[in-house]
Design a protein around this nucleic acid. Structure first.
Length: 428
RNA sequence: GUGACUGUAGCUCAGCUGGUAGAGCCCUGGACUGUGACUCCGGUGGUCGCGGGUUCGAACCCCGUCAGUCACCCCA
């Protein structure tokens, strides 16, 4: 029988790794709750039209990266390549947006058909935040500060840089793209193949070129900032002064252009240099026109999304997950003879009841005490409780620390309640 | 979608210019050990990613295919 395997670019997260994911998600949830954001959950499958109308018909995501197929009745469906569009659809469909303010968060798998590489997979996970109905730069500052707080609690602050830019309104960008395109046309002979190809399809993408010659040409190119309207300028200025007041350092990057069409005014990105080529771990900005574009009443909005895989890679690389979070269990119960298996199960249950924060694993499946001890050490538990029979056919317990100390003590069964705390720290 | 490198036991890897596979770890039985760890002896486990081709003969050469890794593109 041929073995089946996972689809390319779709990873299994095994028990060892899942502890890191749980830790990460618990910090995320704690932080957003602290800022008053509420969770929203929505489907992984939506009408293809939703993404075409939001992300943009001519973007890479829609043109070549979506998992799109026909439903049994012929409707075109797509696996969600990102969360913002779906969040808007869901919130608007249920009347959460009109004349209201909402602070929402979500997380879950997204799908893009790209060649996998470090930090980028076909099924990947995003954690995102979306705020609706607040026009001012204050909410922009809030979500940026929220993201910074995530990094602080995860211990990643020193490894991340905030980049921001003002990309103006959709109309501003259209005018600018035309001007840029015209400029590039005059320097065509100095451009590489790539730049020439994008010159007309998506001229702003040429700004990202890593070719030094092209970059030289760009030095004399028109600047987006010159095409940004007065209103956007004012918004951006207020935002930067808010960031200053909040003590959030940022780098202005005039070439930061998001790949999704719906953004406007301020956009931002958190980047790191420890992940190789995939340096962006969080990206977001304002998208004031999106709700209306999707058929809702005009509603201003801002949000960001974080790539969870990339954060997990950082946490692993930098060893930032506390040992406590990586410990699958606290206590391993060893049953020295099969006669004691019922007592072992009872004891484990009792400890779970009296100390709900502890993970207690009771050895099952038989085996010599020696091999049970071996598993106890391998389990990552702090303490082994060994049930053994005495000469008088009663049972005694041996507590043994599962570290190099070899510390151990023999006690009566009814002493366990008080003795436990002498051996391990029990958090509430 | 493009490119480079890789694909041998559960894991990490050897395998010289082609002659039908090996080690360590893990697991397991035993010796020793004041119930894991060190040492010693034994054991389980692979149609060498898959499919073709060249050859008397291929893990090793050729072609294709699938998968992994990294990079490009783009993005989180």
């Amino acid at each position: 029988m041929e073995k089946l395997q996972a689809i390319r670019g779709m990873n299994d997260i095994l028990p060892e790794q899942s502890l890191t994911w749980q830790y990460l998600e618990s910090i995320f949830q704690k932080v957003v709750a602290g800022y008053g954001y509420q969770e929203i959950r929505f489907p992984v499958l939506e009408q293809t039209q939703l993404f075409k109308r939001s992300i943009g018909e001519v973007t890479d995501i829609v043109e070549k990266e979506m998992y799109t197929f026909d439903d049994r009745n012929g409707d075109s469906l797509s696996l969600r390549p990102e969360g913002t569009a779906v969040c808007v659809r869901a919130a608007d469909q249920h009347g959460l947006l009109y004349n209201q303010q909402q602070r929402l968060w979500y997380h879950g798998p997204m799908f893009r058909h790209e060649r996998p590489q470090k930090g980028r997979y076909r099924q990947f996970h995003q954690f995102g935040v979306e705020a609706f109905g607040m026009a001012g730069p204050d909410i922009d500052a809030e979500i940026i500060e929220l993201s910074k707080e995530l990094w602080r609690q995860l211990g990643l602050t020193d490894y991340l840089t905030l980049e921001i830019n003002n990309i103006g309104s959709a109309a501003d960008r259209k005018t600018y793209a035309a001007a840029l395109s015209a400029f590039l046309e005059t320097r065509k002979e100095s451009l590489d193949e790539d730049a020439i190809r994008r010159m007309h399809t998506n001229p702003m993408r040429v700004l990202d070129s890593k070719n030094p010659t092209v970059q030289q040409v760009l030095a004399g190119a028109p600047q987006l900032s010159a095409y940004v309207g007065e209103e956007s300028h004012e918004h951006y200025q207020k935002l930067t002064s808010l960031l200053d007041v909040l003590g959030i350092a940022y780098k202005e990057n005039g070439r930061l252009v998001r790949g999704l069409d719906y953004y406007n005014n301020c956009v931002f990105e958190w980047t790191t240099d420890i992940l190789g080529a995939q340096s962006a771990v969080c990206g977001g900005g304002r998208y004031d026109g999106l709700v209306e574009q999707l058929g809702g009443k005009p509603t201003v909005a801002a949000g960001f999304a974080i790539g969870e895989e990339r954060i997990v890679l950082m946490l692993d690389e930098l060893n930032k997950v506390p040992a406590q979070a990586l410990r699958p269990i606290d206590i391993y119960v060893v049953v020295s003879t099969q006669n004691l298996s019922a007592q072992g199960l009872e004891l484990a249950t009792e400890i779970r009841k009296s100390h709900p924060s502890l993970g207690v694993l009771c050895h099952c499946g038989g085996g010599k005490p020696a091999s049970q001890m071996k598993r106890a050490f391998a389990s990552g538990a702090q303490l082994a409780i060994i049930l053994e029979e005495t000469d008088s056919a009663s049972t005694q317990l041996k507590l043994r620390m599962l570290d190099d100390s070899n510390r151990s003590e023999i006690i009566d069964v009814d002493q366990i309640g008080s003795k436990l705390e002498e051996f391990i720290v029990i958090s509430r």
